[in-house]
């Protein structure tokens, strides 16, 4: 499943935020390559810069210095239309707060990106139902978000992220607002998708449960990459994980 093509390449990225007169350096020079089809976890304590890095990769924010390439295209070179297209077709986003659009049913949420992509209503509805069935919500597609539990809303969000068969799914703390069991279900659903569909999944998290399914873990600390571990290295050092997470908080 994993081929060597680098779907994401981050070179020398820094990001500073202005907080009043103060400059906060959230990223202090990050270099990262992500191979297509992998399940990547970006791990680190809260405030370490995971979300900031994540927003750069997703084209949601611009680095202060450095470049981000998606499929070898420098996203700083894209105009507003191309960026919108990238967000619509190439990347699927999953949020900690689910972000289901409240005024729409589950199905309408899932079909909205397809409508943006120019798909006809019927085809979009058909595909939307298939996707909702795939995430285990086949009987709920007419439900409004407030009638769904957190876990179910996150499933809708996953179906929506898959709407236009993106190459990359970005998930920022996807289990952050879920209880232990529901979070685990969501993690395994994401893993299953990455295996079956070859989608690259990049997930920022401090959820230790993510380690089991990750092909690669990027440890980030204080705006820098601490180390990158592959799956095989991880299973060897499994005894140390508790310690790592322990001082991560």
């Amino acid at each position: 499943m994993t081929d060597s093509r680098k779907i994401v390449r981050v070179t020398g990225v820094t990001k500073s935020f202005k907080l009043g007169k103060l400059d906060v350096l959230a990223l202090k020079g990050v270099d990262l390559e992500i191979a297509a089809g992998n399940y990547i976890s970006i791990m680190g304590p809260s405030g370490s810069g995971k979300s900031t890095l994540f927003n750069m990769i997703g084209g949601l924010d611009k680095p202060t210095t450095g470049k981000v390439f998606i499929d070898e295209v420098d996203i700083a070179q894209l105009d507003a239309y191309e960026l919108a297209w990238l967000r619509c077709r190439k990347i699927g986003y999953i949020f900690q707060t689910f972000n289901i659009i409240q005024v729409m049913t589950a199905l309408e949420n899932v079909t909205l990106p397809m409508i943006f992509a120019g798909m006809a209503d019927d085809a979009a509805a058909e595909k939307g139902i298939k996707l909702l069935e795939m995430v285990g919500l086949g009987d709920r597609f007419q439900h409004k978000p407030f009638e769904l539990s957190g876990g179910q809303q996150q499933r809708v969000a996953i179906a929506r992220a898959l709407a236009n068969d993106p190459a990359i799914i970005l998930a920022d703390e996807p289990t952050g607002n879920l209880d232990l069991n529901t979070g685990e279900e969501i993690i395994y659903l994401l893993k299953q998708l990455s295996r079956e569909r070859g989608v690259t999944i990049i997930s920022a998290t401090h959820d230790i449960k993510m380690l089991n399914v990750s092909d690669q873990v990027v440890w980030i600390r204080d705006g820098r990459i601490d180390k990158i571990e592959n799956r095989d290295e991880l299973s060897i050092s499994i005894g140390q994980i508790g310690r790592k997470i322990g001082d991560g908080h």
């Binding site: 949601l60 919108a84 949020f95 659009i101 909205l112």
Partner: peptide, 15 residues
Amino acid sequence: REIGTMKCLGALDRF
């Protein structure tokens, strides 16, 4: 949040 989400899904400013 709704507006930001729509933009993440590919909405243009003019939508």
